Simulated assay, not measured.
Amino acid sequence: MIRLSPLNQRRWRNFRRNGRAFWSLILFSVIFTVTLFAEFVANDKPILVQYRGDFYAPIFRFYPETAFGGDFQTEAIYRDPEVQCLIASGGLDICFDDPEAVIADAEDGVVEGEEIMAGWAIWPPIPYSYDTTVDRPGAAPLPPNEQNWLGTDDTKRDVLARVIYGFRLSVMFTLIVTLLSSVIGVFAGAVQGYFGGRTDLIFQRIIEIWASTPQLYVIIILFAILPRSFWLLVVITVLFGWMALVGVVRAEFLRARNLEYVRAAKALGVSNITIMFRHMLPNAMVATLTMLPFVITGTISLLAGLDFLGFGLPSSSPSLGELTLQAKQNLQAPWLAFTAFFAFAIMLSLLVFIFEGVRDAFDPRKTFE
């Protein structure tokens, strides 16, 4: 069991008493946990298959169609009625004639008067992945119905499945970029503010030059040379995003570097690293945490904007920005615009409320009754 120090206990109590932040954390945790296991929630493969007494997990492993009595060595298309018939009937050859009738008979354990070892499959609640083409008549995008709760996009992919995967992708991208950018930015700002003088002057000139570099042009040039990928976009975003926290951390360290407790620590021979990150950094956390909501919302908006412009993740990725672009291109399908709007509004609102609560919990001047 983790035991918190008295100071952290007070911070946790302050956060708990901030009802908006606390319930936002609970709601966001529930949504994010569900999306973390998106493969178990929305997938065109069964979670578990029982065939002739053996168990298979298609979500985790590749199984050819021949493993279920089929003819092809390629991966089984589990949504195909013939494959479902092979699983249900134990691999009967008659599945290729009338699979739906055989499936109905296999539920009773008897097909054409003969007893069989009926198989079964456990499917996710949403039987579509983010790249699955929905088999529905009509021109795409298709409106919501009992089969596709949020409709389909312009290539007949289930919108709800893409939102689930896209939410996870956006949050993971934001958390990774924010963590790496914060570490680099806090360290750079601490070094500048603590040592000051020539070190601060040189760092400031470097930051001014680097900040003037057009980020969008760099992304366009790199993606014209290198294949687009998640991690390449993370690296580029971190390279330009770490400067967001440098200014506030530098200002707090410049203010505290001449205070008495810092001078006393230096006189006692305490190392610079210990003074900076054990004694001075906690006092600069309030100003740092004040900027985090802006960093997080800016990162999410950057990813969505790049995907909207076509310079973000690959087009096959489940992106909320790409969904927004589809909403713009298909004004006759308002469910796309409403879905993109509410997905971004809920995500950004919850994250801002949470980090506002964290900021106030670290502020010794604020208490909640």
Score class of each variant (00 low, 15 high):
277 F>H: 11
138 G>A: 01
59 I>Q: 04
167 F>T: 05
184 I>F: 08
356 E>T: 10
344 F>P: 06
325 L>V: 08
319 S>T: 12
125 P>Y: 04
313 L>N: 09
319 S>R: 01
21 A>W: 01
190 A>S: 15
332 Q>I: 12
286 V>K: 05
194 Y>A: 07
104 A>H: 10
320 L>F: 07
314 P>M: 06
8 N>D: 13
213 T>R: 01
244 A>W: 07
132 T>N: 04
49 V>E: 01
51 Y>H: 08
283 N>V: 13
143 P>M: 12
79 R>D: 05
178 T>K: 01
95 C>S: 08
220 I>D: 02
369 E>P: 11
367 T>M: 10
46 P>G: 07
89 S>R: 00
105 D>N: 08
62 F>A: 14
253 F>E: 05
339 T>C: 01
297 T>V: 15
96 F>G: 02
278 R>W: 11
307 D>C: 11
287 A>S: 15
246 V>G: 05
283 N>M: 13
193 G>L: 13
309 L>I: 11
223 F>M: 14
86 L>W: 03
257 R>L: 08
230 F>E: 03
180 L>P: 07
369 E>N: 14
329 Q>F: 13
261 Y>P: 02
352 V>A: 03
82 E>Y: 00
185 G>H: 04
44 D>N: 13
65 E>I: 00
288 T>H: 06
245 L>G: 09
179 L>T: 11
305 G>Y: 05
259 L>S: 14
268 L>K: 11
287 A>Y: 07
172 M>A: 15
230 F>S: 09
69 G>E: 03
56 Y>L: 02
31 I>C: 07
107 E>C: 06
192 Q>L: 08
86 L>P: 04
314 P>F: 02
245 L>Y: 11
196 G>H: 03
75 E>H: 04
142 L>T: 08
149 W>V: 06
10 R>G: 10
335 W>G: 00
357 G>A: 12
104 A>V: 10
84 Q>V: 00
136 R>Y: 13
235 V>I: 14
98 D>N: 13
183 V>E: 07
339 T>A: 01
232 L>P: 09
14 N>D: 12
1 M>G: 15
330 N>F: 14
25 L>E: 04
231 W>G: 13
289 L>I: 07
202 I>N: 02
256 A>I: 09
188 A>N: 12
157 R>F: 04
59 I>H: 03
137 P>Q: 12
279 H>M: 13
199 T>L: 15
96 F>R: 06
2 I>T: 10
2 I>A: 10
31 I>E: 00
277 F>I: 11
330 N>W: 12
9 Q>T: 12
231 W>F: 14
231 W>K: 09
266 K>D: 11
94 I>P: 06
282 P>Q: 10
31 I>K: 07
225 I>E: 06
97 D>E: 10
9 Q>N: 12
352 V>W: 00
84 Q>E: 09
67 A>P: 00
